[in-house]
């Protein structure tokens, strides 16, 4: 197992490398002169040229790339001009907020999705199945950013139960209960779609597994229905669902962009949207890279989990 994890980590290196190439290429392709964006359209040509030189933008692309990666390896992601602070500091601060939000949402959607899927499969065609199937259908059809607005309208404005935005209360907040209170609405909103997808898939996987010969064998051995479903069937279904949870992690991380904007959560998604509109290149680069890298890492975890559950996959 240890050797497998190590091998996966080694294989992750070219992927990360590829990510930097793509990110860099995308940014290099951005039309317009970043220096103009920074200095504004009234800047003198001399100033623009000087800034470009300072930023290293007059060098050939390959050299720019090497410098950029080299700096990053030393922990220098550059400076955000719009915030006037090191990109890395800003990104890490924002990213931890996103992790809290996305992590909670991922936990929610995995647990709820699996439970709903199992109940739905076990009670196939019963009322619980119908209710869940219908709820799932609504869940995956609702635009999450709109759902967020509706929830704010209901819980924050009409009933005034929960805060409408932010991560901590401005006055006197900052402790864990305060964070949790702020977390509920955005995390739930973010989890809705992924819950639906996971529930659907779990249901289908369970139904598929329950028809397998080995489930018949389990019954023929005299196992109880509980053991048949929760031990034999669920274990096999989980193997099919775990990669989907891995993929959903990507959707949750990405979906955070909307949710953070709607709930003004100080995360990396909201930061990116702002950085794109202000053309703060280095900030976009750093942000995208960190999120993508964390996603690669998460998929690696999902792979490892799947290998631990499924002995048929070669270690």
């Amino acid at each position: 197992m240890g050797a497998y994890i190590l091998r996966r980590l080694i294989f992750a290196i070219p992927v990360l490398f590829g990510l930097t190439v793509i990110v860099f290429a995308i940014m290099a392709l951005i039309p317009g002169d970043p220096a103009v964006a920074i200095l504004g359209s009234y800047a003198t040509p001399e100033n623009v040229e000087k800034l470009n030189r300072d930023l290293g933008l007059d060098k050939p692309l390959v050299q720019q790339y090497v410098t950029w990666v080299g700096n990053m390896l030393q922990g220098d992601f550059g400076r955000s001009y719009s915030l006037n602070r090191p990109v890395l500091d800003e990104v890490l601060e924002r990213f931890s907020a996103t992790l809290i939000l996305a992590g909670t949402a991922l936990l929610l959607c995995s647990v709820l999705g699996l439970i709903a899927g199992i109940v739905s499969a076990v009670r196939q065609f019963g009322w619980a199945d119908r209710v869940i199937t219908f709820a799932v259908l609504i869940g995956i059809s609702t635009p999450s950013f709109w759902l967020g607005l509706l929830l704010i309208l209901l819980f924050a404005v009409t009933w005034q139960l929960l805060p409408a935005s932010g991560m901590y209360a401005i006055y006197g907040g900052g402790d864990l209960p305060d964070l949790l209170k702020h977390l509920i609405l955005p995390a739930v909103t973010l989890a809705v779609v992924a819950t639906g997808v996971i529930a659907r898939l779990t249901r289908a996987a369970m139904l598929e597994v329950l028809r397998q010969d080995y489930v018949r064998t389990a019954r023929a051995k005299g196992l109880t229905e509980r053991q048949v479903i929760y031990r034999h069937a669920f274990r096999a279904a989980l193997v099919a669902v775990i990669p989907v949870i891995g993929i959903q992690a990507g959707f949750v991380l990405g979906g955070a962009v909307y949710i953070e904007t709607v709930f003004q959560w100080p995360g990396i998604g909201a930061m990116l949207v702002k950085a794109i509109s202000t053309r703060d290149l280095l900030l976009v680069q750093g942000g995208v890279l960190v999120v993508a890298a964390s996603y690669v890492l998460f998929n690696l975890l999902a792979d490892v989990a799947q290998h631990m559950l499924d002995p048929r996959l070669k270690l």
């Binding site: 959707f251 990405g254 979906g255």
Partner: peptide, 22 residues
């Protein structure tokens, strides 16, 4: 394709819009 999938879905779309402009 794997490389493209290594980006969280919407993030990649954002990056592309960043290149092409809104």
């Amino acid at each position: 394709i794997d490389m493209l999938m290594a980006f969280p879905y919407i993030l990649l779309a954002l990056a592309i819009v960043a290149v092409l402009g809104p």
